[in-house]
Structure formats: C-alpha cells, structure tokens
Design a protein around this nucleic acid. Structure first.
Lengths: 338, 338
DNA sequence: ACTTGGCACTCAAGAATTGCGAGTGCTAAT
DNA sequence: ATTAGCACTCGCAATTCTTGAGTGCCAAGT
C-alpha cells in the first residue's frame, strides 16, 4: 500500500512534469491527481523518493523533478503500450505507401517519425550484414575504369569505382560479370569473403590484376561501412525544447553529426521490443540531457536495422514508444512489399 | 573623396561588426581603422549612410549595424576574392580525395564546406537534367517484379521497382535490357522522352504491358525529381550564432527541412561566379536573418548542380565566398576523375 | 504506525531603482 | 569640410526589495 502510493506519486510527478515542464509541488500534485491524501503526506513520500534518487529539487524552495533514475523506473513500469489513434495509424500508412525506392522509404520514414513524435528522428539504412546479394553489376566506364554495383535484397544499393592499370576488353568485363553473378547472387554478404577466396585464381592470368581489384572492392563494399548510412530529420524540434529548458542544443546537433555516435545509438538496441536510453544512459556526452528511444525493424522477420527518436529526457515516453514501434512495424511491411 | 570615405566607413563598419557582433560606434571605428579623421566626421558620414539605408541603429544610444542593403553594397564592392591559405587548400584536397563513390563525395563535401566556413553547408547532387546515361540495368527480382537502375555519367544512380501484372521470363527481361541499353546509353536524360516514344511499339506484344511499365518508370525516374537530392551539414553551427544574436533558430531549421525551399535556394544561382543572397533577398521567410552563398559546380565544363552555405547576415563574406568557390572547384575536379 | 494541520524557513524569480557610460546630434569655431 | 565641445539619450548591469511557492519538521489526531 505504502509502496504502491509512492510509485503512484512518482508516476504523477513524471506525468505532470512532462506536460508542464515545471517542477511539481506537493499541493499541485494532490489537486491534479486524486491521490486521496493530503499534501503533507505526499511531502513525506517525496522526501523518501528523493532519498532513493528518483526525484530531485532544482533548489530548496522549488518542487521536484524526476531524475534519470526516476524516468527509468517510470518507463520500466509502464502499464502497457498505449495504442495509437486510428487516425494516426492511417496517417502513417498513407505517408509510407507510394515510395518509389529505398531512399524514398528512408526519407519518408524519418519525416514521418519526426512529425508524429515531434522529436528528432533517426532511421538507419538496412544493414548489409544481414542481407544477401540480389544482384551484382560490373560496368566498363572506360577501358581502365569499372563501376561495380551491389544490390542487396533489402533494396539497398552500393556502388564503387574501380581503377585498373591495364585496359580491359568489354568481353573480359562481361565474362567477369557473369562469373561474379554466378558466384554471389543469393549469398549472404557476410559469406562473401569466403566465397570470393578463389575467384581470382580461376581467372585468365591476363585479367588477373583487374580481377584482384574487383574482388578487393567488392569485399570492401560488402564488409566495410555496412551500417553507416543514417538519415536524420526533425532537427527543428530541437529548437522548441531548447527554448525554455536548460538544454544546450549545440552539443546535441554536434553529436548528431558524428557518425560514430549515431552508430552507437542505433547499434546497441537490443533485439525485439523498444530500447529506451535515458539521459546519461546514452553514454554520449552531448546527449546527457536527452533520451533515445529506438527499436529494430526488418523484413521477413530478420531485423535489418534500427530507427528511433532523440528527445529531451522529459518527453512523453508512452507516446514516443508506441510511435516508434508503430513506424517500425509499417516500415517493415513496406520493405517486405518491395 | 567624400564618397570614397563614406564607402570606407561602410566597409569598416561591416568588417568590425562581422568580427565583434556588436554595434560599432564612431570612436571605435577611428581607433581600429586608420581613417585619418576624427570621430565627429565619421558621425556625419554615418548619419548620411543611415539616411541612405545602409546602416541602422538598434537604439538611440548605440552604435550602428549594417542593414541588408549595407551588406549588399559591401559584397558588391568586394575588392576581389581573397585567396585561401595554402594550408586550407591542402586540407580541402586531402579531404575530398579518396572518396569511394558519389554518395561519399557528397557527404565529404558537405562536411568539408561546413567545417571550412563554420556555417551550415548545402550540397546538391548532380542534376540529371544536364547528364547523360552511362548505363541502364534491368533486373528481374521476381517473375512479376523488375528493378530498373539508371546510372548517369555524373555517377548518380537512380533505382526504381517496377511491378508488372503478368509474369515475365528471364529471356524477355534480358532482351528488353539489351534493347534499352542500345537505345539510351550515351543519350542525354532530357532527350529520353523522345527516344523512348516508339520503344513499346517495337516490342513483342506479349511483353508489351511490361514494356509500358518499364518505359513509364524510366521516364519518371529520368524527368521527375531531378534535382531533389540535397545534403545538409554543419547545422550545429546554427546554435553558435543563435546563442548571442536575435536569430530564432527554429525557423531556420524548419526552412532547411523543406525540400521546396532548398530547391529554390540552390536552383536560382546564376551560372558562373558566386551568388550571394542577403537577408530578405533569400525570399524565404525563415531565412530572413541569414544570408546564402551559393555557386554552381560541374564536371567537364557543364554545370551540374549547386553548393553553398547558409549563415547569419553578419558572416564573413570574403571568406565564405572564397571557400564556396574553392570547394566547388575541387568537387568539380574530383567528379571529373570519377 | 501512519496521516495531517500548522508554522517557520528558504530561496529563486520578478519588479523597481539606480548609476554608468557609450554613443549620438548639434553648434560654433577653425 | 572638419573638428572640438557639450548636452542629451537610453540600454544595460548591478543592486535591492518583495513575493510566494514550496519545503521540512513537529505535535496532534486517528
């Protein structure tokens, strides 16, 4: 009973603070929520909650605000995912359908997510790690330059220029293309290094140098920078919460321009379900007063990549979580159609 | 002589304001610049300049700041482009070389430009309008779905999925691919509508529906959304000038998320030379207290697209202009190598 | 053993006041 | 045309004052 009320108080504090963005006091709390006890009682509970580290006072004569730990508890005990309004679902569906290609899907998704959550949105391109090769194309741009194109079954596409020392005939290029196609189509990207091991040896010695270059580039494209493409949107929302609260927006914008940081945010999401990292938990300096809500998405049941949002720690977690989840779900569906 | 000095005063005011970001007074001016006259004289000139609309007073007892018109005059009379420091040139070169593909070039360029100018950078992908087709690829993803890939000689690449009603054989796809290749490779994108006019008619009636879909998609890819891809970087710099000056950063971020706005900024640049739009001249609401410096870049002499920066009206125009110009030059060179 | 009313205490934030000084415009002298 | 002198303006920073929301604690009540 006692413990129950304390949690209710924490919950009420989080909810009020999320909506008003102002420290909440004991009196306001009993007025806005039907807690059935007097402010004095609440004060005792608050003192206990503060002792345990769930809430804090900006200064002596102010109300309480939740700490990172407080949000953590709140999120962990969320009663359940609030379903999205029907209108919202329809909006999502309408927004994502009619994408012409993968780039388009990514751009639309990030816009949608930013719009629905009113936060900064991040969407990672489908990883090559878990994809396989749909097609390979080798094109002679000139006699000493080839263009290699790799298409993943997720629709993602990588291109690389290859410079070779000796001129190569169109016939040789065509042969190599055919061999490449035979070897790699349908194979997982992760298995390419093994598969390509003997490729050059079985080549006509004359074109071996070219083959070596092609294989090197292919493996580079297939194994390096696999997950490095991330689209960002909705940064304008940053200004909104920067206005009133002591969030320096520069470090946030800086963090969002660092590929490494983004990779960390997107990469660490646990499989299945939604990951919420609050404040310091992001382990990124510039994001210490923001929270990150991510989840994985993927087609055909395999999880390809992550998407999510970045917002102030005092965001509406319920809404954020359900939106992120819903968008991930729809993206997955769209990608399956592709 | 008199007119000369007035211009010198305007110039001095702009320069001082750009470095200090504070209204500049008559006394400070004569101290920092060797104008050879007394503050009182400067005051007379200032009064005249204010009358003509080149400078303004934030309030009665403050110094003067340049108006948009003042900056305009300053920029128009710039003595000449300040050459970049050798170190800077080397940095640019090092930064851009070693790009693996077009995406890479674009991303590196935008980062570079943002870093060098310490402003927000915009880089537009090479337009298809002025490119021609390097290669076309038609791939059967399934029996009722094709993937069309268009590669421009600028290295830009477009992909589209095509759903067809009736299953199509691999042989038919291969035939169509061969015909497509023969028809369009080497042709300008702008000429494709004419070229493709009779394509479907010369098709085996059996696969005509598929051919119609392919042609429609091809033309759509080649003629719609030609210039729509723009990369943005360096938004973190926005926070820097947002800190001290009365620039609301939200409208700027919002404007930068509007494709239409970006297109207008990038599209209107005049050919050759650098375009500077100051304050209201941008004709974008959210950018009324920023200036935009753009120029065109392109390979083989043809100008493919634009790149540039967005910064506060009180930016260092000299530096901005020369940096934008230099980066455009190097990008052009890199693209020519590709 | 919890709850609650009462009460003294704290302290950030806003309003009001003041002094300072940078900067101006004007005038009269050079 | 230039300049020194001077009265005037007015934003800004520093200072002080006031207010009130909110707290912690204690003693009384259930």
């Amino acid at each position: 009973m006692l413990e129950d009320r304390r949690l209710a108080v924490l919950r009420a504090i989080v909810e009020d603070y999320v909506t008003t963005h102002e420290p909440v006091g004991s009196k306001a709390l009993v007025e806005r929520h039907s807690l059935g006890v007097s402010p004095a009682t609440i004060r005792n509970d608050m003192a206990a909650l503060e002792e345990e580290g769930y809430i804090a006072q900006p200064h002596t004569s102010a109300g309480r605000i939740p700490t990172d730990l407080g949000y953590r508890h709140f999120v962990d005990r969320l009663s359940g995912v609030k379903p999205l309004a029907a209108g919202e679902r329809r909006a999502i569906e309408r927004f994502l359908s009619g994408s012409v290609d993968l780039d388009d899907v990514m751009v639309r998704t990030v816009r949608l997510l930013a719009q629905v959550t009113r936060q900064i949105a991040l969407v990672q391109y489908p990883s090559l790690t878990r994809s396989s090769v749909r097609h390979v194309e080798l094109i002679a741009v000139s006699t000493t330059r080839l263009l290699l194109i790799l298409i993943a079954d997720s629709g993602r596409l990588e291109q690389r220029n290859i410079d070779i020392n000796q001129p190569i005939s169109d016939q040789s290029v065509s042969d190599m293309r055919a061999r490449l196609l035979g070897e790699v189509v349908g194979q997982a990207f992760s298995s390419l290094p093994g598969i390509m091991e003997n490729f050059t040896e079985q080549c006509d010695p004359q074109i071996r140098p070219a083959a070596v270059a092609v294989v090197a580039t292919l493996l580079d494209a297939a194994t390096e920078h696999l997950d490095e493409r991330i689209v960002i949107g909705g940064t304008a929302h940053l200004a909104r919460y920067g206005e009133e609260f002591p969030i320096a927006i520069q470090p946030v914008l800086e963090a969002l321009e660092e590929q490494v940081v983004l990779m960390r945010l997107m990469g660490e999401s646990t499989m299945g379900g939604v990951t919420v990292r609050i404040g310091q938990e992001t382990e990124v300096e510039g994001l210490s007063s923001t929270s990150v809500v991510t989840t994985r998405y993927g087609r055909h049941g395999q999880e390809l990549a992550s998407l999510g949002i970045v917002g102030p720690t005092h965001m509406d977690y319920q809404n954020a979580i359900s939106s992120v989840q819903a968008v991930a779900q729809y993206v997955t569906r769209i990608l399956e159609e592709q």
